Simulated assay, not measured.
Amino acid sequence: MIQRLLPPLAALALAACGGSPADPGPPPDARLDQANRAGSQALSMDMPSLAVRQYKTALQRAYERDDAGAIADVSYNLALAQMRAGDAKAAIGTVHDAQRDLERRRAPVPAELFLVLAAASYRAGDLAAADGAAQDALSRTSGDSDTAPRAWFIRGLVAAQRGDGAALAQAIAALPPSKQADLQADREELEGRAALLGNRPAEALALLQRAAANRRQALDYRGMARALASAADAALRAGQAAEAADLLLRAGRSALLQGDTATALPLLRRAEETARQTGQTGIVDEVARLRRTAAERTAAK
């Protein structure tokens, strides 16, 4: 994932991309390791802005010591933190800088870097770049068994957005059922989108609600909000406008509380419009309260 688009696009796991046992590379650098650990701790505490600052310090040290493995590792971590902070374009720039550096020295570009590039590109709305980077991730060997499923998930999201049912079916086939909540949510979300493409909104609604529940179980709240919003679309197509208003409210409220106002406000506007049509005054009042909260937070910055 794409936020954790993986998730977070459900999540992109922090991956080690350094030397092999036969080539252990240079000895550890205490300043680099300390900044990298601090960034990971901040990210685990849902403090992405602080994580970005710490990873930038670590990345500067990695370039200072001219360590290709550390540059790849920390660039991945920094790009992930930048995505969590809502800056997909900065994440794309971070990956491109690392990619150019590694290619100049003829060092391999890890699959995980292409994965986070795919997620950031999808978040930025560049479907062609997202699909290409996901394919690049799939074409490389990864030490993380989750990399390929994450890449297929992004390819599936792209296919769904393009209305390409055949490519979406291929992505779903590459994602077997899983006991891991976030991976199962990936499959359910793609199945839900396929059901929408196939004009089966009731089936889509059930699948997308299950996906949202699994995102919650995986602590992937950005992905949960995305699944709830998609479930609202399915509810509307199934003629369940009252259910759609509730789902839109829940998706928008979660996104707002995550600090993602760009995603939240359109969802809350749709929730209000739908709730007015269905006479759900409680939802209208809640949207008004949330908008005041958003305005107060903006004024306090």
Score class of each variant (00 low, 15 high):
5 L>D: 15
26 P>C: 06
26 P>Y: 05
28 P>W: 05
28 P>K: 01
31 R>K: 13
37 R>S: 09
38 A>T: 13
41 Q>Y: 15
51 A>N: 07
54 Q>I: 10
55 Y>M: 07
56 K>W: 15
56 K>E: 15
56 K>F: 14
58 A>R: 05
61 R>Y: 10
63 Y>F: 13
65 R>F: 06
66 D>A: 10
67 D>E: 07
70 A>D: 14
74 V>T: 04
86 G>H: 00
90 A>D: 04
92 I>G: 00
94 T>E: 02
95 V>A: 04
97 D>F: 09
98 A>L: 02
100 R>D: 12
104 R>V: 09
105 R>F: 00
109 V>K: 01
114 F>M: 10
117 L>C: 03
118 A>G: 03
122 Y>I: 08
122 Y>R: 08
124 A>L: 04
126 D>N: 11
129 A>P: 05
129 A>V: 06
138 L>A: 03
143 G>C: 03
143 G>H: 05
148 A>V: 01
153 F>I: 04
154 I>N: 00
156 G>I: 00
158 V>Q: 06
167 A>N: 06
173 A>C: 03
173 A>R: 09
173 A>G: 10
175 L>Q: 03
176 P>M: 00
179 K>M: 15
181 A>Y: 05
182 D>W: 12
185 A>K: 01
186 D>E: 13
188 E>A: 14
188 E>W: 14
193 R>D: 06
193 R>Q: 11
193 R>G: 05
197 L>M: 10
201 P>W: 00
207 L>M: 12
209 Q>H: 08
212 A>Y: 02
215 R>C: 10
218 A>P: 02
219 L>I: 13
220 D>T: 01
221 Y>P: 11
224 M>L: 10
225 A>K: 02
225 A>L: 03
226 R>T: 12
228 L>V: 09
228 L>M: 09
230 S>Y: 12
230 S>M: 10
231 A>F: 01
235 A>E: 01
237 R>N: 06
250 R>P: 12
252 G>R: 07
253 R>S: 14
255 A>K: 14
257 L>I: 13
265 L>G: 08
265 L>C: 08
265 L>N: 08
266 P>K: 04
267 L>V: 12
269 R>Q: 15
274 T>N: 05
278 T>I: 04
279 G>R: 03
279 G>Y: 09
279 G>S: 07
283 I>R: 00
285 D>L: 11
287 V>C: 07
290 L>I: 06
295 A>K: 08
297 R>W: 11
298 T>E: 14
